[in-house]
């Protein structure tokens, strides 16, 4: 079984995001980048599946200049991926349609039975890469997947799709297929820095052409804004005891908790 994992980097939300002077994008001056959380779940699942069925895990990551895609790919190798490929060359993170186009082009030269990617990313304004890519390559797809198993004959896979209220739909898919992973069976494993650093020096990071780039998202961003926090909320200030007193009073007004009118 050849597993392929699609990854990208997204802005680290530990930094407060700010809007650029044009008002339609993010200010990039202080931005730092991390692997998209759900893509890491996809990799973790792929590694478990490979260990169970045999085969290979190939990681594809978008070649974006901001951030450090080579470090991301070296981290994939440190976690146990067999092969890593940097896809395309972008100045900034592309929209989901362009990302799907680049991955779709790169897959021409890469064997794939099951393609796993994060169900979503925090920046996918124009939709999720998984189903966009699957449709471009005419592959079946399922999103919001919480459980994956590959049949013994390697021709089909079972995937659980999560709905509201903890209800789960079980599907059987013909392979090759694309799954958007919601969570992994175990937390993504730790990649030791010493190994990542060593791999940065020695590992082979292949490059794949991302194709023509496609037509983009078809969206025009008119404005971006930081939602006004507490625009509706009355903020309670003071030390923890003062805050607790105020909350207790608010609750008491509504007849909840001690001190409430009885």
């Amino acid at each position: 079984m050849d597993y392929v994992v699609l990854l990208k980097q997204v802005p680290d939300l530990a930094e407060d995001l700010e809007i650029d002077s044009a008002g339609t994008g993010l200010d990039r001056e202080w931005m730092s980048f991390v692997a998209s959380e759900w893509d890491e779940y996809a990799l973790e699942e792929a590694l478990h599946l490979r260990d169970a069925t045999g085969g290979t895990v190939t990681c594809l990551a978008l070649g974006v200049q901001a951030g450090d895609v080579d470090e991301l790919l070296a981290t994939c190798l440190a976690r146990g991926a067999d092969r890593v490929v940097r896809v395309g060359s972008f100045e900034q993170s592309p929209d989901s349609h362009s990302a799907a186009g680049a991955f779709a082009a790169a897959l021409d030269g890469i064997p794939h039975d099951l393609i796993l990617t994060g169900v979503q990313a925090i920046d996918d304004l124009d939709g999720q890469v998984g189903p966009l890519l699957a449709t471009r390559r005419d592959l079946p797809h399922v999103s919001v997947v919480t459980h994956i198993a590959v049949a013994a004959d390697g021709k089909t896979a079972t995937a659980h799709q999560e709905y509201a209220g903890g209800v789960v739909g079980e599907f059987e898919l013909d392979l090759p297929a694309v799954l958007g992973v919601q969570t992994s069976r175990e937390a993504p494993r730790y990649a030791p820095v010493s190994r990542v650093r060593q791999l940065m020096k020695t590992a082979t990071i292949e490059k794949a052409d991302g194709g023509g780039g496609g037509s983009g998202s078809g969206l025009t961003i008119e404005a971006m804004a930081v939602p006004e926090s507490g625009a509706t909320a009355e903020m309670i200030t003071g030390n923890p005891v003062a805050i607790a007193d105020r909350i207790a009073a608010i609750l008491a007004e509504r007849g909840i908790g001690a001190g409430a009118p009885r």
Partner: peptide, 28 residues
Amino acid sequence: ARAPIFSVAHYGAVADLLDVVPALTARL
């Protein structure tokens, strides 16, 4: 202070829950 929860909350407090919760429980 910039957590999106404050954009839907009616009341908000920027504090460590581990400080506020025992105080609130005691107050109640």
